[in-house]
Design a protein around this nucleic acid. Structure first.
Length: 118
DNA sequence: CGATTGACGTACG
DNA sequence: TCGTACGCCAATC
């Protein structure tokens, strides 16, 4: 019947999925994801969710998620401060002083990209 | 159950 | 333009 509920309906899971949906060479912000999840005011929770991403079996491209300024605020949480930058550069995203270059251009908004279809 | 925190965001000075 | 303060909300201690 109804429920089975076993998967964590917590927005944590949603964050992981959305983060995983981030296309290659693209970046997004915590607020964008939070808003997409309906918890725009809980932008902080998004970052926290990604913090749990380390425990996730699936690799979550959290390195594609930056703050509103396009700054790699969470680079410190990747294990190594340079890892995030390296990953982004590896995808073609240029990072200048811990800040994503052309961030606005590379910005990927789940509300828009995922709204088109599917 | 209460207090603290946290990878943000916005407002204000 | 930059730094500080506050708010939001859920998870953790």
């Amino acid at each position: 019947m109804k429920q089975k509920k076993k998967e964590e309906d917590s927005f944590f899971t949603h964050v992981f999925e959305v983060a995983t949906l981030i296309p290659y060479g693209r970046v997004t912000s915590y607020g964008a994801i939070a808003k997409y999840l309906g918890t725009a005011r809980s932008s902080r929770m998004v970052g926290w969710a990604l913090n749990s991403a380390h425990s996730q079996k699936k690799r979550v491209p959290a390195h594609r998620v930056v703050n509103r300024n396009g700054m790699l605020t969470g680079k410190h949480h990747f294990g190594t401060p340079d890892l995030m930058k390296q990953l982004l550069e590896s995808e073609g995203v240029k990072v200048k002083k811990d800040q994503v270059v052309n961030f606005k251009k590379l910005f990927w908004d789940p509300e828009i990209e995922l709204k088109i279809e599917n």
